[in-house]
């Protein structure tokens, strides 16, 4: 692309993609009277935090927020460890059912989650009687389910990162007398750590996005609800509280943004390695 054309395209693209988010934050900051006014002005002269205040003080929002954060971060850590082990196994070892295992990971990505909510409900209920902490109304149940649904993509991405580690390094370590565990955790793990960080964004978003499972598994323990439930509070039969909805939505977006911007640079550089092959 030639420079001036490309510059214009870049600015327009950035503007179009960013505008809806600007509109969301702006609506959260507009005073109640301005929000529903018919001429939608793209600025406000009297920004207010009244909506944010209402959201933060009412209906257990901060509690739900911490619950969501706990679930997402736990899923990120567990998923990184489990996916790392699995990715090393499918890229570095030759064994009989290797391709079958890879296809199974793809198949897990095809399962319509909505069709599984009822069997999952019974599974979690029964599991809860055997293993406390993962039953109905627990955050552990959400962690377990999101871990499962984030693993296939995480392993798929990690495969490339593991393959990018030169095999000569492992052979050198082996000649120096390093055992398998040492090679795994002291040689491969540090080298694929950037890849793990990149992959963790996907797991974080999967868990943070949750809409269905929280509504299915957390039925009576109000304290264990997560953020989507908090969003629904602002829907009223007569008049939706759009200021509150937009403020809550903004708050719900902030953690993903922080996480995302923090790892963004590594994400792009790292994914290059993952896709190389």
């Amino acid at each position: 692309m030639r420079r001036p054309v490309a510059d214009v395209v870049a600015v327009v693209t950035a503007f179009v993609t960013f505008f809806p988010i600007y509109w969301m934050v702006l609506s959260a900051l507009k005073p109640a009277g301005e929000i529903q006014s018919l001429d939608a002005r793209p600025w406000t002269l009297a920004p207010t935090f009244e909506h944010f205040q209402r959201v933060l003080t009412g209906e257990n929002f901060s509690r739900y927020f911490l619950n969501s954060l706990f679930v997402a971060l736990t899923v990120v850590v567990l998923s990184a460890l489990v996916a790392f082990l699995a990715a090393v196994a499918v890229t570095r070892f030759t064994f009989r059912f290797r391709t079958t295992v890879l296809i199974m990971f793809l198949v897990a990505q095809m399962v319509p989650v909505e069709a599984l909510t009822i069997p999952l409900f019974f599974l979690i209920r029964d599991l809860g009687t055997a293993v406390p902490g993962v039953g109905l109304n627990t955050l552990g149940a959400l962690v377990l389910v999101h871990l499962a649904f984030s693993l296939p993509f995480a392993i798929w991405m990690m495969r490339g990162f593991v393959a990018a580690v030169p095999e000569a390094l492992e052979e050198a370590a082996m000649i120096d007398g390093a055992g398998r565990a040492t090679i795994l955790w002291r040689v491969i793990f540090p080298l694929v750590a950037p890849g793990l960080v990149a992959t963790s964004v996907f797991s974080f978003i999967t868990a943070w996005n949750d809409f269905i499972f929280a509504r299915t598994f957390i039925i009576s323990a109000k304290d264990n609800q997560t953020l989507p439930a908090a969003l629904l509070v602002f829907f009223k039969p007569d008049e939706n509280d759009w200021g509150g909805i937009m403020a809550a939505s903004t708050l719900m977006t902030i953690p993903v943004l922080i996480f995302f911007i923090a790892v963004q640079r590594r994400l792009i550089a790292g994914l290059g390695g993952a896709i190389k092959d």
């Binding site: 964004v201 943070w208 909805i245 995302f260």
Partner: peptide
């Protein structure tokens, strides 16, 4: 440009 992807689906639906 990348931010929309990080916005939770429920939030983007509402927005």
């Amino acid at each position: 440009i990348l931010i929309p992807w990080a916005v939770p689906t429920a939030v983007s639906g509402l927005m």
